[in-house]
Design a protein around this nucleic acid. Structure first.
Lengths: 132, 132
DNA sequence: CTTTACGTTTACGTCAACGTCAAGGAGGAC
DNA sequence: GTCCTCCTTGACGTTGACGTAAACGTAAAG
């Protein structure tokens, strides 16, 4: 499977939905919200590797508790990275900095949470040991 | 400020809400949902350090996209860690393991996301360099 | 004693993110 | 042809997590 072959591949709604664990309703909803713009083959939707990549980004954002509006901002940024307009690149770079900062804050948050959970687990084990 | 002094301190709805960046409506809602059980001074709510700790846990869960039901499970677990019933401790320990696994998966997810964001930012900078 | 600034409960409203249902088109199997 | 299955587009329903408004209590300030 060459690179071009992989990138030329397309998906139907069902294929893409099943692969990424969402319903077809979700895909249509995202399209109505302007997050995806699959091509059409007649009336049927046809998703490219690019659409698939966008969708994966969106779903990851959702897992982090982002709203669809925030997800859209992110995926649009990824698309904007190919521009050649100086001003747009600068704006984009600044936004990316914000996003990165936010992500790092989340990492810290997550680290603390995990440490606490591990701590509670340790206390549990101690109690169990005490109980023989 | 001794330890006991700090732990003996109480908060009104407004104080707690303002400090943790939520509305009083949210605190009352959480109470109605059984996530918080502040004492009463007459009819007024009085939150202890313990309530505050629970609330912080809940809010952190929310930031991670957890539902209130999931948050409740977590905070109840923290409370349950002091039990002396063997069976309950074992169940709790197992659940904690699940939670920890999930958290670690999220960490990986975050790491990948951050790497991608950094990558896009780097490509931006390259483009800017090319443009002089 | 009234005003002002809180607090309270109860009830209904809202918004996001879909689910669900109805009514039908397109294309293959038989 | 006629099923059958999958797809389509609306349109309305649902759920979670609050917001908002009404109607009232309370306690300190002037």
């Amino acid at each position: 499977m060459t690179r071009t072959a992989e990138e030329a591949r397309t998906w139907t709604v069902r294929e893409l939905a099943d692969e990424l664990g969402v319903t077809t309703r979700t895909l249509r909803f995202y399209e109505a919200e302007g997050l995806l713009r699959p091509q059409r083959l007649g009336t049927a939707r046809l998703y490219t590797a690019r659409d698939r990549a966008r969708l994966r980004l969106i779903l990851r954002g959702r897992r982090f508790g982002m709203t669809l509006a925030e997800c859209r901002e992110i995926v649009d940024m990824y698309d904007g990275a190919a521009t050649s307009e100086r001003r747009q690149l600068e704006v984009l770079l600044a936004r990316l900095g914000d996003v990165a900062r936010d992500l790092r804050a989340r990492q810290d948050d997550l680290r603390r949470t995990l440490a606490e959970v591990d701590d509670v687990a340790a206390r549990c084990r101690d109690r169990l040991d005490e109980l023989g």
